Amino acid sequence: MMVQTQSSSPRGFAAMSAEKQRKIASMGGKAAHAKGTAHEFDSKSARIAGKKGGQAAHAKGTAHVFNSQEARLAGLKSSKR
């Protein structure tokens, strides 16, 4: 019988620098697109996914709550597109 112990130090992907993780993830995304198996959102499914993420963040208490100045600036940015 083998007993597993938990390590407090990160291993594998988690132990890599953020830059190296991004590089590897980017390679995977490029490969999926080249192969034709990457998921591509249309505007409706992207809106639904964003809404789910926002609801989850609010439920966890981790969502950013805009003050009136931030909301005004965000609105100005989106209107310039």
Score class of each variant (00 low, 15 high):
residue 79 S to Q: 14
residue 44 K to I: 01
residue 58 H to G: 03
residue 3 V to M: 12
residue 39 H to V: 01
residue 30 K to V: 13
residue 38 A to I: 02
residue 57 A to M: 11
residue 59 A to Y: 02
residue 12 G to Y: 06
residue 2 M to L: 14
residue 54 G to W: 02
residue 81 R to H: 05
residue 42 D to F: 00
residue 9 S to F: 06
residue 4 Q to T: 12
residue 7 S to T: 12
residue 68 S to C: 04
residue 12 G to C: 05
residue 56 A to Q: 10
residue 26 S to A: 12
residue 19 E to N: 06
residue 43 S to G: 02
residue 73 L to M: 13
residue 20 K to L: 08
residue 58 H to N: 09
residue 68 S to P: 07
residue 81 R to D: 07
residue 58 H to Y: 08
residue 35 K to D: 10
residue 19 E to K: 05
residue 1 M to I: 03
residue 57 A to V: 11
residue 35 K to F: 15
residue 11 R to H: 10
residue 23 K to R: 11
residue 49 A to V: 00
residue 4 Q to H: 08
residue 48 I to G: 04
residue 11 R to M: 10
residue 28 G to I: 01
residue 20 K to W: 06
residue 74 A to M: 11
residue 19 E to T: 11
residue 7 S to H: 06
residue 67 N to F: 05
residue 9 S to G: 05
residue 25 A to L: 15
residue 77 K to N: 11
residue 79 S to E: 10
residue 36 G to P: 00
residue 9 S to P: 00
residue 59 A to R: 10
residue 38 A to G: 06
residue 23 K to I: 02
residue 71 A to R: 13
residue 71 A to N: 10
residue 70 E to F: 03
residue 32 A to I: 05
residue 40 E to N: 03
residue 23 K to L: 11
residue 48 I to A: 13
residue 73 L to S: 06
residue 14 A to G: 01
residue 26 S to V: 03
residue 26 S to L: 13
residue 10 P to Q: 10
residue 50 G to A: 08
residue 58 H to V: 08
residue 20 K to I: 03
residue 44 K to N: 07
residue 14 A to Q: 12
residue 29 G to V: 02
residue 76 L to P: 00
residue 39 H to G: 03
residue 68 S to M: 04
residue 12 G to I: 03
